[in-house]
Design a binder for these strands. Structure first.
Ligand code: FES
Ligand code: FES
Lengths: 143, 143
DNA sequence: TGATAAAAGGATGCGGACATCTTTTATGGT
DNA sequence: ACCATAAAAGATGTCCGCATCCTTTTATCA
């Protein structure tokens, strides 16, 4: 289940930039696209958006590229999800009925609300940096 | 979050048929579509599929329509999900990497696997009948 | 200052989920 | 036998996520 491709691309790209930046000041789209097997031009759009939203920074010109800024590692996953997928999926009724509320719950509501809240909590409290620290460097092979 | 519209339509329609069938032997697409505010022709496709898969039964001709069968109320939600959305979303990596496995977990894996398993358990163990019993008749206004 | 490199930006295309409409087939009542 | 009715079937259309490509802008360096 079930995040958009954009979310996955964005997350993996940021992780890659953060890790590579430890030894290398700039990372270019070309490199990210190749290493992470992401369509280059599509990735361009995503990283441009991430830069505009100040999740990462970018520099044009020769020796340009993308690089982390002060906020990068403390970005919560929820913020990323907001940018790529929007937050409606967390807030609206799972059956897309008018309004998810405890007074007039849809048939699924009581079965799903706890699970959903746990997910929201995880997305709110987990940051980019958390992912890197917890899994150590090992997973660079699997992003 | 984040079931397909088809899943929502299917679930609500079945619930409606089950409940109405207590006092009325057949239910027609027209009626379901109006009461549940679902596009009629699209609903036709879905209910045809549900009938073919024996989740409900159908009868053509005058006084025809859809009606429950012996298995309807004991259908697990997971079976419904399988028919409308497929089960891949439960099985594959949330970042759509090759294979979700504990040996080479993606960065999200450990953050999400428990939540996902809880969801699978709920979908496996909850049936159409469960939904009707637990919420009693009240929610007929909100399907 | 001009050549070059890389991101920013925009136009276009593709496929699948969602939706509508029309035709065919089966059924029960007359 | 015939007709009205309703599901089955299928053709067609729309929209959006995903993807590609091309042009423009900005920065660097010889
Ligand atoms: S009312 Fe549907 S999930 Fe809350
Ligand atoms: S490896 Fe990605 S969710 Fe399990």
């Amino acid at each position: 289940m079930f995040f958009s491709k954009s979310f996955g691309y964005a997350l993996r790209s940021i992780l890659y930039v953060v890790m590579v930046n430890e030894t290398q000041p700039r990372v270019q789209i070309q490199e990210v696209a190749e290493r992470l097997q992401i369509p280059k031009h599509f990735l361009g759009k995503i990283m441009k958006m991430l830069a505009k939203e100040k999740i990462i920074d970018s520099a044009k010109g020769p020796f340009g590229g993308f690089f982390v800024n002060d906020g990068t590692v403390s970005t919560p996953l929820l913020r990323l999800m907001e940018l790529t997928d929007g937050l409606e999926q967390f807030q609206e009724c799972s059956l897309r009925l008018k309004k998810c509320n405890a007074d007039k719950p849809c048939p699924m509501h009581n079965r799903i609300v706890q699970n959903r809240n746990e997910l929201i909590t995880m997305f709110s409290s987990t940051t980019i940096g958390d992912l890197i620290r917890s899994d150590d460097k090992k997973f660079i092979n699997s992003i």
